[in-house]
């Protein structure tokens, strides 16, 4: 039973991490390598707002998410816009942004700025306490992750299917020029996608981070998870990303229960290799497969 519950939590953690990355890639074909750094940035900002500025927790979260969205916007408007369509340059540039943010957060003492020192950057859970579900003790934060994950995916689905902005994102994702002919501005859409993607990375951070502590290293780990999930799910496929999160999430939990925690990363990489061996375009990477066939 605990495999089912903790596996689900783990899977939704992956989904939350990957959904922003997939959104950006799906819409603008930009592999946003700064995804993990924004995750950490939001964690750090929220912690600072609460602990240094004595801000209300909810307000701190809202403010950091807004900052994340602005960072995404600036990153596109001033850096990525010049590199559109050159995948390698996009990766290098966004990874550079990621390094600046993550290593910048370790800086000490410039203008009174205090970066990460020591392991005590812990965000408070939204609600303390545990609950007994079918004989397994689950803390409320993990339940919030499940609820939050489902809500995020659901709201994102509604947004992309029933609002004009969401529809223009989907249009650009499917056929950029055809969407332009109907009045969708490609640059503006990419900018919006990057803002939303960054805010989603931040949202994942504030929901997930109370389970552990905020560290700069988490940025690299999150980026790798996001990449793994998107590649397995089929780059740019949102349903694929959710499916892949469950595959990886459960594979990791089951292997931990059976062979011990040391095998976790081996299983993660092993799953990626196995799936790519049999389905090179990922689980739901339809478009790519069609292209390959043609």
């Amino acid at each position: 039973m605990d495999i089912v519950i903790y596996g689900t939590v783990n899977s939704i953690v992956f989904a939350l991490i990957a959904v922003g990355f997939t959104l950006v890639y799906g819409v603008s074909r930009i592999p946003n390598f700064a995804h993990g750094s924004i995750y950490v940035l939001v964690g750090f900002l929220t912690w600072s707002f609460v602990n240094d500025l004595r801000m209300n927790y909810a307000l701190a979260i809202l403010l950091s998410l807004t900052i994340a969205a602005v960072v995404g916007f600036i990153m596109y408007r001033f850096i990525l816009i010049r590199l559109r369509g050159m995948a390698t340059s996009e990766i290098i540039a966004s990874f550079a942004v990621s390094l600046v943010i993550l290593e910048g957060l370790r800086m000490q003492g410039i203008g009174g700025f205090k970066g990460f020192i020591g392991p005590f950057y812990v965000l408070r859970p939204f609600i303390e306490g545990k609950m007994n579900i079918w004989g397994v003790f689950v803390d409320f934060q993990r339940l919030i992750i499940i609820g939050g994950g489902i809500a995020v995916v659901g709201l994102l689905w509604l947004f992309t299917h029933h609002t004009k902005m969401g529809l223009s994102l989907r249009a650009i994702a499917q056929d950029e020029r055809a969407a332009m002919m109907l009045g969708v501005n490609s640059d503006r859409t990419a900018m919006i996608s990057l803002s939303i993607g960054s805010a989603l990375a931040g949202l994942a951070a504030v929901i997930i981070l109370p389970l552990g502590s905020v560290t700069a290293e988490a940025g690299y780990k999150v980026l790798i998870y996001a990449l793994a999930v998107s590649i397995i799910g089929g780059l740019g496929s949102w349903a694929g990303a959710v499916l892949a999160s469950f595959v990886i999430g459960f594979a990791m939990k089951i292997s931990t229960a059976m062979f011990g925690a040391v095998w976790e990363s081996v299983v993660l990489v092993g799953t990626i290799i196995l799936i790519l061996l049999f389905k090179p375009s990922g689980l739901l990477g339809k478009q790519k497969e069609l292209e390959e066939r043609v």
């Binding site: 529809l167 989907r170 249009a171 499917q174 056929d175 002919m181 109907l182 009045g183």
Partner: peptide, 30 residues
Amino acid sequence: TSDRAKKGIILCPERRRIFPESSVLENLKI
């Protein structure tokens, strides 16, 4: 292009370029 579209110049392109993953209704909505 998008500004021209706002001014009322709409191109229905060669080979149609329908959005393949969207339903008929959603294509029209887009």
